[in-house]
Deep mutational scan, measured.
Amino acid sequence: TTVHIGNVTYHFDNPEEAVKWAKEMAEKLGLRIEIHGDTIRVE
């Protein structure tokens, strides 16, 4: 599972961890997340 924040990509072996981490980052940055299969974007 990959999480994209701007130009930076993070890789997670556990999809649930990826979603949890992306949600925390989105809250901190005042952004929202979009999930497309195994790709998560924070925008």
Rank of each mutant, 00 (worst) to 15 (best):
T1E: 01
T1H: 06
T1D: 02
T2L: 10
T2S: 08
T2N: 08
T2M: 09
T2Y: 11
T2G: 03
T2H: 11
T2F: 11
V3G: 01
V3I: 04
V3T: 01
V3P: 01
V3R: 00
V3W: 01
H4D: 04
H4P: 01
H4R: 09
H4T: 10
H4C: 12
I5E: 01
I5N: 02
I5V: 09
I5Y: 06
G6K: 07
G6A: 08
G6R: 07
G6L: 13
N7K: 13
N7H: 12
N7P: 07
N7Y: 11
N7G: 14
V8E: 12
V8M: 14
V8H: 14
V8I: 13
V8N: 13
T9V: 14
T9Y: 08
T9S: 12
T9A: 12
T9W: 08
Y10D: 00
Y10I: 10
Y10N: 03
Y10E: 03
Y10Q: 04
H11E: 06
H11K: 11
F12C: 03
D13I: 10
D13P: 09
D13N: 12
D13M: 10
D13S: 12
D13K: 11
D13G: 08
N14F: 06
N14R: 07
N14E: 08
N14V: 07
N14P: 01
P15Q: 14
P15W: 15
E16A: 12
E17W: 07
E17R: 07
E17C: 09
E17K: 08
E17L: 11
E17P: 03
E17F: 08
E17I: 09
E17H: 08
E17M: 09
A18H: 00
A18R: 00
A18D: 00
A18T: 01
A18G: 06
A18V: 02
V19L: 15
V19F: 15
V19C: 05
V19P: 00
V19A: 07
V19H: 09
K20N: 09
K20Y: 07
W21A: 02
W21E: 00
W21D: 00
W21S: 01
A22R: 00
A22I: 03
A22G: 03
A22P: 00
K23E: 07
K23G: 06
K23P: 00
K23A: 08
E24M: 15
E24N: 08
E24W: 15
E24H: 12
E24D: 10
M25H: 04
M25P: 00
M25F: 06
A26K: 02
A26C: 06
E27Y: 08
E27L: 11
E27I: 08
K28M: 13
K28H: 10
K28R: 13
K28I: 13
K28L: 14
L29E: 07
L29K: 04
L29Y: 14
L29G: 06
L29R: 05
G30L: 05
G30S: 05
G30Y: 04
G30T: 03
G30Q: 08
G30N: 13
L31T: 11
L31S: 13
L31G: 15
L31C: 10
R32F: 10
R32Y: 09
R32L: 13
R32K: 15
I33S: 02
I33L: 13
I33P: 03
E34T: 15
E34S: 14
E34Q: 10
E34I: 14
E34A: 11
E34V: 15
I35G: 03
I35T: 05
I35D: 03
I35E: 04
I35V: 10
I35C: 07
I35K: 04
I35M: 08
H36D: 14
H36E: 13
H36R: 12
H36T: 11
H36S: 11
H36L: 13
H36P: 01
H36A: 10
H36I: 14
G37E: 06
G37Q: 05
G37F: 04
G37A: 05
G37M: 04
G37N: 05
G37R: 04
D38Y: 04
D38Q: 12
D38T: 13
D38H: 12
T39P: 02
T39K: 06
T39E: 11
T39I: 14
I40K: 01
I40N: 01
I40V: 05
I40T: 02
I40A: 01
R41Q: 05
R41N: 07
R41D: 04
R41V: 14
R41A: 04
R41C: 10
R41H: 14
V42T: 04
V42H: 01
V42N: 01
E43A: 12
E43Q: 13
E43H: 14
